[in-house]
Simulated assay, not measured.
Amino acid sequence: MRSPFHLVEVSPWPIFCSVSAVCVVVGFVDWISGNSFCLMICSIGLLVLVLFQWWRDVIRESDQGWHTSFVAKNIRLGMVLFIMSEIMFFLGFFLGFFSSSLVAGIEGGAVWPPVGIVSLNPFSVPLLNTSVLLGSGVSVTWAHHALVAGNRNEVLWGLYFTVFLGLYFTVLQVFEYFECSFTIADGVYGSLFYVMTGFHGVHVIIGNVMLMVCLWRCFNFEFSSERHLGLEVSVWYWHFVDVVWIFLFLCVYWWGG
């Protein structure tokens, strides 16, 4: 009798993904510190390549019939637990931000932002980024509901808009970094700002790649109104990215600035 559960084979992708993710972080810090961004770009390319290979294997398992209802249920649970771990990850940064801002240290003039820091105007590029990301949340929800209703054309258009808005957000974030008057080495404010927004930017890039994969699969008729687990968990992840950015905008850009 066949078991409803799937025992995955040995895979090299988890360790490769971890190493490439660490390299992305190191490259980002190196770039923000005023050095070349070559390491960051190469690391992002390596991370995308590893994720492509990993998702390719998962899609093959699905096509071979291994993703039964029991497996799909566990994948959804795993995604929920992963998002919860990500929430705790960002919560640590927010706690550090409020700990530093509510009781400002004397080395920064006992004020927040510290003396010498010219914070960004929250109602310029950050507000535009907020509207872009919220718009992408609407379009990806539209795509999800259209897939459940069996309307493939609307699914494609919804994913097109979402991927475009995600890329636009990333471009705006990079230009914002170039316009900043402070760096990651400028005290606790610079460190917290770049680490919090930078990690969120990495999550946006990963979420965008996930949606690109879903767009490609939908274009090749690999999703149906009953079987679209990949798109479903990608939509969850994208909404998580949206919510984190709202808190970043309100706390770091608006209140913290």
Rank of each mutant, 00 (worst) to 15 (best):
F94Y: 11
W112K: 09
F82Q: 06
C17T: 14
L51I: 05
V118H: 12
V132R: 04
K73S: 13
V111D: 03
L102C: 05
N35I: 03
L47G: 03
Q53W: 07
L51G: 05
A110G: 11
Q53L: 13
F93P: 00
V22M: 14
V19K: 05
F70K: 10
V118L: 08
I41S: 09
S36V: 07
S139M: 08
L49W: 13
L120G: 08
V10T: 15
L46Q: 06
H67F: 14
I59E: 11
S11A: 10
S101A: 14
W55E: 11
E9H: 12
A104H: 05
G105F: 08
I87Q: 01
W13T: 15
V138C: 02
I87G: 05
P14F: 11
V48H: 08
V103F: 04
F28T: 15
N35C: 07
G92F: 02
S136V: 03
T141A: 07
P122V: 06
L128Y: 03
F82W: 05
F16L: 15
V132C: 03
G78D: 06
I75F: 04
V24A: 09
F52E: 12
G116N: 14
C42W: 03
F90H: 07
R56I: 03
E86T: 09
E107S: 11
D57P: 00
R60T: 12
V140K: 02
P14E: 13
V19W: 07
E86C: 07
S99K: 05
M79A: 13
G92P: 00
E61M: 04
D57M: 11
